[in-house]
Design a binder for these strands. Structure first.
Lengths: 247, 247
DNA sequence: TTCTGTGAAACTCTTCACAGCA
DNA sequence: TGCTGTGAAGAGTTTCACAGAA
């Protein structure tokens, strides 16, 4: 069960690291656009909103791509991260559900530049089928399986109402899809080996509300309510526990 | 390091738990609608897509709201979680940037039902200002500060292009906002005490692409069922998310 | 000297397994 | 008996701090 790959390096990159690589990539692209050729872990970390030790540890999982005393070559690092994420290849994506959100996604410019090509927009509503959006003609959901097969779709985005999401999910997994990005406010049940990521707007707002509430309460709270943060701040001083998620 | 062993009123709820409470809440609401009055940790966990030990541990941070040998009272648990998340109060939200995504957000029904009220839609484009969307008239960005002040806005959603996001961020934090949900593909710099959550669609897709690629490469003859359902609310996932809208 | 790469420590989160209550 | 609540073990992640390359 121990895995070894063609390369001697251990390919087990921590999930937390994978989730940050796209952030680094974006920061690096920004630097490249500004003509910056080399960057230190300190500076890149600042651009990406993490601390430098974490950044170095993350990058160390990919290999030794930096130069001690100097930093990282921006272009080279962009290439290495892109390759690691699989962005050097073309991914065909189908978007199911062309409501407000589906349209927003279809018009989002950040896909093509990262190797994602929208291969199809599908919807069940006859009113919507046939509309032209972002250069594509909306197709009927009946064609879901044939579109996936014929256009080599490997990632499906579900932007349907909650009630249809599970059914769409089952159809696409049956058609061989193993990567799904779900926007519908429902927990999808999928077979083993299928990777689902969920984006839920109202959940994000609820998490913000929790912290917002906490701030208000904590400010007036009693002595017992000291935060879990550092032991540093004593009582009496600032009570708000700062918690910028991003630097 | 002082440490109240008594779990009773320790208000330090783990971040990972907070991120899952909205999911439990959604599952519970589904049960309530179906007239189910009591639920076991096993069943609720299944509805929420987590394992039961995790669910029990999460709920134990709120207090002892279950009954041994029986389970949890659905309505009571809905109330307790809602209260913990601060959803029993009304939150005024302003959405800045009324492009495709801003419109999708404005029309998203999942807000109102959870105590979030859209108090204003703002945009810089004179073409858009004055449009009526989701029952609101789009206002000019010039009014940002006065809207926040006069309508008691506590959460701001940034759905502008990347180039404007930081400026909007600075204006709203100066106006006293400490909770921001950012959809612009950029890392915002904020003062301590300001909570930013980011949603970045292209990052989510890149993470999927990474795993998809991994499957293709390593799967050939690989270990039986790959398992690894990546979803749920990840740990690192808590903070890093995806985006949308650009030019 | 500067800055990377990395062991080790610290911390957080998940899972196990079972005591104990209804 | 059936199920919650929870210590304790385990796994994963972050941070520290410094050896060592350029």
């Amino acid at each position: 069960m121990t895995r070894q790959t063609s390369q001697a390096r251990d390919r087990g990159i921590p999930e937390a690291t994978v989730a940050r690589l796209p952030v680094y990539l974006r920061a690096l692209n920004g630097l490249a656009e500004r003509g910056i050729a080399t960057v230190s872990s300190e500076d890149l970390a600042a651009s990406a909103g993490v601390n430098s030790a974490k950044l170095r540890k993350d990058l160390s999982h990919l290999g030794s791509y930096g130069t001690r005393g100097v930093g990282y070559d921006v272009d080279y690092l962009i290439y290495q991260i892109s390759r690691e994420l699989g962005l050097t290849q073309d991914w065909a994506v189908a978007i199911v559900g062309v409501g407000n959100l589906g349209r927003a996604l279809a018009n989002y410019g950040g896909f093509a530049s990262r190797g994602f090509r929208i291969a199809s927009l599908l919807d069940a509503d006859p009113e919507v089928v046939g509309d032209r959006i972002a250069g594509l003609t909306v197709e009927h959901i009946d064609k879901l399986e044939s579109v996936i097969r014929e256009r080599d779709v490997s990632i499906v985005v579900i932007a349907t109402p909650a009630t249809s999401a599970q059914e769409v999910c089952e159809r696409v997994t049956r058609a061989g899809i193993t990567s799904i990005l779900n926007f519908a406010p429902v927990v999808l049940t999928v077979p083993d080996g299928v990777d689902v990521r969920k984006v839920d707007l109202s959940i994000e707002l609820q998490i913000l509300a929790f912290h917002e509430q906490r701030k208000a309460v904590g400010a007036a709270g009693g002595p017992g309510g000291s935060a879990q943060v550092g032991p540093g701040i004593g009582p009496g001083a600032g009570n708000e526990w700062a918690e910028a998620v991003e630097a």
